[in-house]
Design a protein around this nucleic acid. Structure first.
Length: 518
RNA sequence: GCCGAUGUAGCUCAGUUGGUUAGAGCGAGCGUUUCAUACGCGCUAGGUCCGUGAUUCGAAUUCACGCAUCGGCACCA
């Protein structure tokens, strides 16, 4: 009996005051690729995303447009969910923090747990508040004593809030990081987080006056005049969707297991996930996340994207215009997983045409055509191997190892590159073995040699499909289908050279990646 | 200002603990094949490895300083 590993993989939940942008698409695709690779490797994965409905920004955006906040939130949340669907994001759950009945009870329960631990207390918060900005400003942000944005002096506001004793968790958090119990990737983000914690932690305000929160959000238990700070609320989604505070079921299965929870986030929200969230969990006596993976930001055609900046590149439009796998492939291979990158349609088209179409699609086409034409559409049995076959097998074995390592290191761009090194090796093998020439020879030796070459080419295609699965799932399945296999043949454990069954039915078919117009 | 990074061929990036002529993919040029989506394959193109100084027999790889870009510096996802 084998122990089933489990893993809870999540995206951050974006606030939904506007439509999604290309950065959200990147996060979805990265998370989905990780989840698919884990599933492929036999992990019982639960992949979750959702929306942060309770942000003040949502309320402000709704106010500005003169529509009810709930309506605005529902509208944009639908867009986010639809984007995930269009991108092939295979989610197990989608949680909306304002309307999902599982959420608020969990937030309240978590609050109570922290309270019982003695980590929540009331204190007066004083600060300069800019009514124009709708938030607190610091002295050094001011220009001549005025808010630079609104050219008005801020008001001195004093407000009683609830605070979380974050200061208590400095050592425990450092311990988590140093022991490797909470992994933060890439390494520079771990260093950054560690330095932030080591510099000393101040207690965190975790509520807002009802007025300041526009009456939108979850009430502090027992104090209807205070609304729970949106981060405390939003972070809870990771366990509320698992049914917590019910400590059995999905919570036990996916949160408490050793492989544990993995949060994929944008670098801008690192602190909330790597400092506040684990501290809250420790306070409540719950296990902290096991891994926090921080990706970079995407510019669109060189320009910043952001909800307030408008969408230079609308991801929903991109999915309509380009094949979804091409978009996924571009985002995963040509944008560095943890650094900032730029999205440009021209580069996407170039990657599609030269790599997906010319290298991979064409390989599929040439191999299937040869097998259909010369072996009646059945994968022939190989007869031994020469140095050329051994080299191809070696390339495949290396590629499998490199892809696995790329996923483990959270370097998906490198993993994707490794897939295409195998594609190139297969094309080179075809050129040097020249099966089309063997097919014209009447002798028996050539015929058996042709069997061997075609088998190895088909086997290379199978491995390629398996490795490409997390990046381009639809296309991987189509490649597998063309050589008579289903997805089971692409499981990680099956990606060992030589497991392709002889006699598999091979089909010709439509071009996998039709060229795109520049 | 402080802390942490990044800066390598037109573009996107690799470059382990310092060691022979600095690499890959894409793009570009040339050649070649025909099974294939005029695709593939081969060759070539030549980049002061941001700059300056230092350590060393020897540095893209160590140190210092400078320049440029980015992130963080606490409650504005």
């Amino acid at each position: 009996m084998t122990i089933q590993r489990t893993q809870h993989i999540t995206t951050a939940i974006p606030f939904v005051n506007a439509s999604p942008h290309i950065g959200h698409a990147l996060e979805l695709v990265i998370t989905d690729a990780l989840a698919r690779n884990a599933r492929q490797r036999g992990v019982d994965v639960r992949c979750q995303t959702g929306t942060d409905d309770n942000s003040l920004k949502n309320a402000l955006a709704a106010e500005q447009r003169g529509i009810p906040t709930a309506e605005l939130v529902r509208h944009h949340a639908d867009e986010f969910d639809a984007l995930g669907g269009a991108l092939g994001f295979a989610r197990d759950d989608f949680i909306r923090t304002s309307s999902d009945p599982r959420h608020a009870p969990a937030v309240l329960a978590l609050w109570r747990r922290c309270e019982r631990a003695g980590d929540i207390y009331r204190r007066t918060y004083e600060g300069l508040y800019c009514v124009g900005c709708e938030h607190f400003v610091t002295e050094d942000e001011l220009l001549d004593g005025r808010c630079p944005e609104h050219a008005r002096p801020p008001e001195h506001v004093s407000e009683e809030n609830y605070f979380f004793r974050l200061s208590r968790y400095q050592q425990p958090l450092l311990g988590l990081i140093d022991r490797g119990a909470m992994r933060i990737e890439p390494p520079e983000r771990r260093v950054e987080t560690r330095a932030f914690i080591a510099a000393g932690l101040r207690d965190l305000s975790i509520s807002r006056s009802r007025t300041r929160a526009r009456g939108w959000g979850i009430e502090v238990p027992g104090d209807p005049e205070q609304i729970i700070y949106v981060w405390f609320d939003a972070l809870t989604n990771y366990i509320s969707a698992l049914g917590w505070p019910d400590e059995e079921g999905d919570y036990r299965r996916y949160w408490c297991e050793p492989a544990g929870p993995t949060h994929v986030i944008g670098k801008g929200v690192l602190r909330f996930h790597a400092v506040y969230w684990p501290a809250i969990l420790l306070s409540a006596g719950l296990p902290p996340p096991r891994a926090i993976l921080s990706h970079g930001y995407v510019t669109a055609e060189g320009r910043k994207v952001g909800k307030s900046l408008g969408n230079a590149i609308d991801p929903a439009e991109l999915v309509r215009r380009y094949p979804v796998d091409s978009l996924r492939y571009f985002l995963l291979r040509h944008i560095h997983t943890t650094r900032d990158g730029d999205f440009a349609c021209e580069r996407l088209v170039r990657a599609h045409n030269s790599e997906l179409a010319d290298q991979l699609g064409n390989l599929l086409q040439r191999v299937t055509t040869l097998i259909v034409r010369h072996r009646g559409g059945r994968v022939p049995a190989p007869h031994g191997s020469t140095a050329a076959e051994d080299a191809l097998a070696e390339a495949a074995t290396s590629a499998v190892a490199e892809v696995a390592e790329g996923f483990d290191r959270f370097a998906l761009h490198e993993a994707a590159a490794a897939v295409f090194r195998l594609v190139a090796a297969a094309n080179r093998y075809a050129d040097s073995a020249e099966p089309w020439r063997l097919a014209k020879q009447p002798d028996e030796q050539s015929a058996t040699r042709l069997d061997t070459v075609l088998y190895h080419l088909a086997e290379a295609l199978r491995i390629v499909a398996g490795l490409a699965l997390p990046f381009t799932p639809g296309s991987a399945a189509r490649i597998a289908a063309r050589i008579g296999l289903d997805e089971a043949a692409l499981a990680w454990g099956a990606l060992r050279w030589g497991l392709l069954p002889t006699g598999s039915p091979v089909h010709g078919g439509e071009v996998l990646f039709p060229k795109l117009e520049a």
